[in-house]
C-alpha cells in the first residue's frame, strides 16, 4: 500500500513541478520527486540505483539547476495568449498518442514481479550464478557493471567526460585559458 502512496506522491510532485511558475520551487519539488523516487527504488530492492539517484538526481542535479537559476532568471513568465493554447493542445495530442502506444504495449506484458518473465530468465541466471563463481564479487550489479557489461561503463564515463568538456567549452569566460 505504501508503494501506491509513494507513486501517487511522484505523480503529484511531477505535475506540480511542471505546472508551477516559480522556477525555484519547481526545482525544489523536482528534487523531492527524485528523493521519493529513491525510496521507491529502494523498496524495489534496487539499492545501487537508489544510491546513485540520491546522490546524482536529488543532489548534484538540484545543485546544477540552482546554479543555473542563479545565473539566469527565477520566474517563468505568465502568458495567457491563445496561440500558446493551440500549441499546448498539439503537445497534449502527441503525449496522448505516445502514452496510448505505451499503454498498448503494456497490456500483454508479464505481470509486475512475474518470475517467469523472459527478462529474468535469459541473461540474469548466468549473471547471478556467474558473479560469485566466475568473478567472486558479491554484488551482482557491480560484477555486471564492471565486467560483463564493462564497456557500457566506459561509455558512461565518456559521457561524463563529454558533459564536463561541454560545460567548460560553453561557459569558459573571455580571457581565461
Amino acid at each position: 500500500m505504501i508503494d501506491i502512496f509513494l507513486l501517487m506522491f511522484l505523480v503529484i510532485f511531477s505535475i506540480y513541478s511542471i505546472h508551477t511558475e516559480d522556477l525555484l520551487s519547481s526545482v525544489i519539488v523536482l528534487s523531492a520527486f527524485s528523493f521519493v523516487m529513491t525510496i521507491v527504488w529502494t523498496r524495489l530492492n534496487a539499492v545501487d540505483v537508489a544510491f546513485t539517484e540520491a546522490a546524482v538526481g536529488a543532489g548534484v542535479s538540484t545543485i546544477i539547476f540552482l546554479s543555473a537559476l542563479s545565473r539566469t532568471k527565477r520566474g517563468e513568465e505568465k502568458r495567457v495568449t491563445k496561440k500558446i493554447n493551440i500549441y499546448n493542445l498539439f503537445a497534449a495530442l502527441i503525449v496522448i498518442f505516445t502514452g496510448s502506444v505505451l499503454v498498448y504495449g503494456t497490456i500483454d506484458m508479464p505481470a509486475f514481479g512475474d518470475i517467469e518473465a523472459p527478462a529474468y530468465n535469459v541473461l540474469a541466471p548466468r549473471f547471478i550464478i556467474g558473479s560469485m563463481a566466475e568473478l567472486g564479487i558479491k554484488n551482482f550489479v557491480t560484477s555486471i557493471l564492471a565486467s560483463y557489461r564493462g564497456y557500457d561503463t566506459l561509455g558512461e564515463t565518456t559521457v561524463i567526460f563529454t558533459a564536463g568538456v561541454s560545460v567548460v567549452a560553453l561557459l569558459r569566460r573571455k580571457g581565461g585559458t
Binding site: 524495489l44 534496487a46 538526481g57 546544477i64 527478462a119 551482482f140 557500457d152 559521457v159 561524463i160 558533459a163
Partner: peptide
Amino acid sequence: YDNPIPHVLILTAIVVSISTTAVALALII
C-alpha cells in the same frame, strides 16, 4: 534474487541523464 540487469542499465542511464541536464543548463546560461 531480483533481476540485476535493469539496475545496471539504469546506473548508466542516470549518468547520461545528468550529463544531458548539465549540458542543457550550460547552454541555457
